[in-house]
Design a protein around this nucleic acid. Sequence first.
DNA 1: GCATGCTATTTTGTATACAATTTTGAGTGT
DNA 2: ACACTCAAAATTGTATACAAAATAGCATGC
Lengths: 233, 233
Amino acid sequence: MARKTKDTLRDSVYSALKAMIVTGQIPPGSRVTESDIAAKLNVSRTPVREAFNRLERDGLVTGRPRQGYVVTEFDINMFREAFDIRELLDGHATELAATTATEKDKARLRAMLAECERLAAIPDRTTKEKFQELEVGIDLHRVIAEISGNVMLHGMLCGILDKCQHYVWTELLWLDEWKMARDEHAEIVEAICAGDAARAGALARVHVRGSRENVLRLLQAKSDYQSFFAKAS
Amino acid sequence: MARKTKDTLRDSVYSALKAMIVTGQIPPGSRVTESDIAAKLNVSRTPVREAFNRLERDGLVTGRPRQGYVVTEFDINMFREAFDIRELLDGHATELAATTATEKDKARLRAMLAECERLAAIPDRTTKEKFQELEVGIDLHRVIAEISGNVMLHGMLCGILDKCQHYVWTELLWLDEWKMARDEHAEIVEAICAGDAARAGALARVHVRGSRENVLRLLQAKSDYQSFFAKAS
DNA sequence: GCATGCTATTTTGTATACAATTTTGAGTGT
DNA sequence: ACACTCAAAATTGTATACAAAATAGCATGC
């Protein structure tokens, strides 16, 4: 298998599995067995088990005793919960970031923004490039949380973002609404760079609320769509 | 070993270890080895390892590869972070609870409050009874989070409370400040029962901020105290 | 044809054996 | 007395073997 670090196998397996889940390579609802993963990654079941334990704690997989693990499937309600919390945490983190950001931090944020713009401006961009733009856009929030200086806050926000990232990707990827996110991100970064904590926080909260409405609307539509076919069949 | 449930050993070990850490039976900073715990609980190292993984994810123990695990020691800064987040989450949860609480929920809260009062009113109460009062007082926040209906929020708040509980116990146990908490708890429950979300949320935030100041002040004093002796020796 | 019960397979849970690494301590040399 | 080296002990990391439980499939009986 491809080991990035020289650390423990457990960590490698964890990272590999997490990446596969977050990017949707292993779709939600999939059943994952220890043996399969162990065979695929050429390791024994032991490190795989430990990775599963951590993933379960992260909420990325759900496991019941002696029934194996399933990649967690979010329903609409779980999204409501997640975005509710994200609004609180992201808002607070952005406020903090506006007061603590150094010049280096600000440069980093601006660079990420520029990268988003660059990827968005490519004429006939491929799916891969669209993904990249989304990834940088989501990472922006992670970096803001990091800049906030509250390590625990950063960790919690990353956890939530990990859980939602796959859905944001697959659901929002084809929407023009993402253009709006880009503008909002720019405003947020601007406020942080200006040191305007109140404004930055408010913008962040509005932004999360907007994402929330987009995702919920799409999921609702999808759900209606599916139940329509269920009735028709 | 004493197994509560008929579930997996991993879960039993996890619960047992968590209880020992949260109650301070294993003090922060202690080095814990897999073999010791395995021997003490009469199980093999495997379930112990998995329990450690989960505890590490909870932030209750810290482990570095091939160096074993140590019960996490909070410094003042980590407390600041934890209480910062708790103010947000607890405030929000209390707001939600005020709008969603059923009559049964309200009765439950009132019962917990009454239990606190009862334990506080005992003339020459023992340490055990003081502990019990503290435990019910902290549980009150967990129940409020549960009533909020946001499962994720409840889980996150429980995680934070678990991490802080030991310190609250050992530090605040002998303080009269706890009397204040009892009054504040009563006010919060009152607001929830009245369905006044704004007031309940505001009271909760003030309450958390108060706890924060108490804990920080004590830790600061302790730290000064220790560095005084360090210089003197 | 359908339901029910049993067995066979698959999969997880636990224990143990072995490997690798870190730490500790003794011993020696300066 | 101090520092350095090397070896031995302790501890984690990984693999594998075995046990227990759940699922699935098949056969049998109605």
